[in-house]
Write a protein that binds this DNA or RNA. Structure first.
Lengths: 205, 205
DNA sequence: GTGCGATGTATCACAGCGATACATCGCGAC
DNA sequence: GTCGCGATGTATCGCTGTGATACATCGCAC
């Protein structure tokens, strides 16, 4: 859900729509884009709900010019106290809604702010969800395999492998979480040196 | 798009809603589900457009009982001549709409009915789309890497690998297509024996 | 004989997408 | 010096698809 993502990003610093979208891309990567077509309506909704405030940064500048046709300055969004509360509330949510395809990635992106126990529960929920799906597809596939043509079969096989891959990824993550954090050094699978300070997380510097 | 999928499935045989959904699951596998919430409205739309007809199979049975409250029999959907035309039209479409995340899989599932040249164009389009996305994300990632926390980074990395994987898959498929079909035997990556007759495809037996 | 899971049709509120529109700013080409 | 162009910036609209929900029927196991 976009709401969680916005809350999470504004938790770090106030932003306006355009920046918000850039951050969204930078945070979610290949996972999700979120167009303006959903961003702006969501911001409106969140403002009405009281989670965020809209500050028109150019208001003073505009005040000088009388009724300039629909002049829109940058609108800076800030988290309110209620917004912070709401964020914590959503972070703690480890039910089915957090392990759906569309939601899981957003939850994961803010794992740094999430309680370790909740992290594991979400990871595991996601994994069983995926395993269920995989079993369902495997069963149907077994029953219909002979009727399917080359391409359909290839699509299924590829899909199944993708799910497998994510399950394996999740399993690794769960083990790491259970062990109480990332191991000091991993031999492969990441040219990325772990830059973030291992023990103390959360909050802006 | 659901429309293409429905057209494709009805092209093989007439079906009613429930069966249609089962077939959808069997055909698309992990890739997509399509709920009734979109299926029925789509069927209605397609009927109105003239692509399909609705036959109430239980109409006679109902006729005996006078005005049984909202009695709904099975509704069997059949492709019309215009529907077949429309199907061919959509199959031939190799533009951007065919290489989006949501659409590509459906197009791919009906590659057996698709012109070989179109197949390659869709495959290549999909691949460049993915490569563009990957480059975009890589660039942003390079700029922001240091500011990102462990989890965000992991999410990005995982996403990038998934995209990589699909690109590799597509590349293999493109090569196979270019070579004019599947090689007689592949050593691994498929316990599935190729059942479909290699040269002559298309059309019902 | 009764309940239960599969079969079957349908609607509603809602989220997110893609296209589109429009305005401003900085900057390099001409 | 101005002209256009790509980045920044805000916003709406129609559409597709989802998930929840409702309800009816059928076969069959207990």
């Amino acid at each position: 859900m976009l709401e969680l993502a916005v809350l999470g990003l504004l938790h770090e610093s106030p932003l306006h729509g355009y920046e918000l979208r850039q951050r969204l891309k930078a945070t979610l990567g290949t996972f999700r884009a979120f167009s303006y077509g959903s961003l702006y309506p969501t911001l409106r909704r969140m403002r009405d709900a009281g989670w965020i405030t809209e500050d028109d940064g150019d208001a003073e500048v505009v005040a000088g010019a009388p009724a300039l046709t629909g002049r829109r300055g940058k609108v800076v969004y800030k988290l309110t106290a209620e917004g912070k509360e709401r964020f914590q509330e959503l972070l703690a949510e480890a039910g089915p809604s957090s392990w759906e395809d569309e939601t899981f990635g957003v939850h994961f992106a803010f794992f740094g702010q999430t309680d370790p126990a909740v992290r594991v529960r979400i990871l595991e929920g996601r994994r069983s969800r995926l395993e269920e799906r995989r079993e369902g597809v495997r069963t149907t596939l077994a029953r219909t395999r002979s009727r399917l043509d080359r391409y359909t079969l290839q699509l299924q096989e590829h899909g199944l492998e993708s799910v497998d891959r994510e399950v394996r990824w999740l399993t690794e993550l769960i083990e790491t979480e259970r062990a109480g954090g990332p191991p000091p050094q991993t031999s492969e699978t990441s040219t990325t040196s772990q830059i973030t300070p291992p023990p103390t997380e959360r909050g802006a510097p």
